[in-house]
Each structure stands twice: as C-alpha cells, then as structure tokens.
Design a binder for these strands. Sequence first.
DNA 1: TGCTGTCTATGCTCCGCGCACATATAGATG
DNA 2: CATCTATATGTGCGCGGAGCATAGACAGCA
Lengths: 188, 188
Amino acid sequence: MLRAHIDAAMDGPRDRNIFGAFALMISDDIVRASSSRAPEAGPAASALALLAHKPGLSIRMLAVGVGLSHAGTVRLVDRLAAEGLIERRGHSTDGRTRSLYLTESGKVASDGVLASRDEVIAEGLSILDPAEVKLLCDIAERVLRARLENLEHSYRICRLCCYDGCTNCPIDAELHERGVDREGSDGA
Amino acid sequence: MLRAHIDAAMDGPRDRNIFGAFALMISDDIVRASSSRAPEAGPAASALALLAHKPGLSIRMLAVGVGLSHAGTVRLVDRLAAEGLIERRGHSTDGRTRSLYLTESGKVASDGVLASRDEVIAEGLSILDPAEVKLLCDIAERVLRARLENLEHSYRICRLCCYDGCTNCPIDAELHERGVDREGSDGA
DNA sequence: TGCTGTCTATGCTCCGCGCACATATAGATG
DNA sequence: CATCTATATGTGCGCGGAGCATAGACAGCA
C-alpha cells in the first residue's frame, strides 16, 4: 500500500524476474538457432564458433569454453574432425599440446552458425528503435566488463560470438586493461 | 571509411554480438544457479519452477516447458516423485490426464531454485543504477510481449520464473490481450 | 457400439560423456 | 645429467538420461 505510489522501477523482484525471462528467451533463441546450423546438437556450435574466434586453441581451453570435461571434449573434437570440420596440428613450441583449427568446411559451418545466431538476435531486437538498441548495448557492454571473472570465463562468454563482427570487443578490452594476455594464450 | 563518422549506435553487427554475449552470460548464470539448487542437473530446476508457477500441469504441458520428449518428461517426473518433490494426482474432469503438484518438500526446493536464480540476476544487474534497470526492464517487457509466439512458448519462457515475484506478468498480460486462456489451461 | 483421437506409462536401445588410467612431453631440482 | 613432478592428450569402460515405438485407458463423435 505504502509502496503503491513508488515508481515502478523500485519493484526489484519483478524487474529481475522479467529481465531473467528476457535473457533466457534470447539465449534459448541463440542456442536453438546456432545448433540448427551445427553438424550436431549440443556443444558443436560453440566449438566451431570458438575456433573461428581463436584458431589454435588447445583441447584444454576448448573444454573450458564449451563446458565439457577433458574426455568429452576430445570425443567432440574426434567427431568434428571425422566430419572434416576441425583438424589437429602439433603445437609450435609445446610437444604435449595439440592446436585445433577449423578446416575450410569448418569455416563455412561456423559462418552458418554465427549467421543464424545473428539473425535471431536481430529479430529479437527488431521492435526497438536505434536509440534503445544503443542503450541496451551500452548496458550490455558495461555489465560484461564488470562481470568478467577471468580468461577462462571469457571463453565461456564468447563461445558463440562472432569475432569478426565485434569491432573493439569489450571482453578483449577488459582483459587487456587487466593485463591478461589473451592474444598469446594458446595461439600457434 | 564513410561510416567512420557515423554514431556507434549504427554498428548493428557489433551491437547484436555484444547483446548476444550479454544474454548468454546472464542465461548461463541463471541456469547454473538454478541447477545448483535443484535435486539434479538438467531440466529438474525448470520442472520445479514451472509447477510452483502452475500447479496441476499435465505431463504434456510440462514436457513443452522443460523441452523434453514425452517419455523423457515421464522419467523426470518419476525421479522427482521418487524424491518426494512432486506428486501425481488424477485430473478433476479428464480421466486420461494426470495433474502434477509440488509437495511441501518440492515447494521448498523450488523456492531454493528461484531464490538462487534471483540472486544471480541481482548480482548481474548490481552495477546499474535504478534508472538503467527501469529502462532495461521496459525494453525486456516489450520484447517479451512482441516475441511471444503462443501458449506453449510462454511455458518455455517462464520455465524458470518466479511467479510470486512477478506482479503483473507481461506474458500473462499479453496472452490475456490475445484472448488466450492460460489460467484455465491444465488447471485442476 | 465402434472408431478416432488424446494422455500416460513402459520396454528397448542408443550414445554422449565422465571417471580412471596410460603415454608423451615439459619444467624443476639436486 | 638423471630423476621427479606437473601438464596435455587419448582411450577403455560403464553409466544414465532420454528418444522411439508400442500398449492401455479414457474422451469425443457418428
């Protein structure tokens, strides 16, 4: 009652709930669209997108990004390699490590995944005007930077990103500002 | 080059990419937090939240909400019933249908799931000031209403919602405006 | 009464993936 | 230089979640 005259913005629980549903719906759309263009359901889409983003990743770092165990990631790489989408190469300086790369087919597949993802995000935001989109992205950028935990977390966050489409990536910028060398990590 | 002088807001691909990463990160947090308080990984958290939101759901509608096949949902309900979190009751008017309800333990578990979810959303938005949160939620509300497909889609969207915390639910309002009877659907 | 449709439960099978372990390589130490 | 510890990857094994197909019960209709 006493709260009835308070600006609706103060309704924290309601705001969080609505925002949570919104984020979940958009994420559902992204995951479904990405998977629909991937060779198989599940983490394959993320694997392709991550390797497009960061050629030369190791099994260990790919596992972090796609959220599987070490063995699970090895099997995923096995399957994608069998389909001719990924290839394993020896590491330039570390004989234990394999560096993973997309093949030409893999790049095509990855482009399809990322294009499909971009389409659903565009559809999702299509009712907003440019000023609203700018506001939304300004907020997104700041929250991404603030919530970023570490280098490994960045691979999780960026597992379905289109690196080419992300000029001046806020994650890269934040890591750089924190002195975390991402470019050098697991690069061939 | 010609675009160099254009306001950054016009950088559509970059905006969509950053927004997509943001939505995915928040969704990851929500799913991880919810699952951490659920009795098992996977769709159990959604099942508990949906039944808190809508006591009396059928197997069929629960399957839609949690994204499993019919048989998979039956097995999930079997497991949650075995743990004393859910119970099956006969439908009031349709002998074929079972109505699903949370037990007292199930309500406690569901509350835990939703509390954990609310915490991570609050953390995620903690760097924003109240005006920004209001803007974000205004946008979220409009996009949710605009993107809502049908009644079944609403169960997908709301599968991890805290119904009690969502006064004046935009999904309910949109369905009502479209003349879709949600309250009566699968209710006991 | 019989037929079609809907809802639920179950047997069977598949397969993705984690656990534990083996092998190869790298780095540290004496 | 030899040895030990740590790191990275690959593999056998087994588990269990879940989809497919089917059966049975109930509802609606002619």
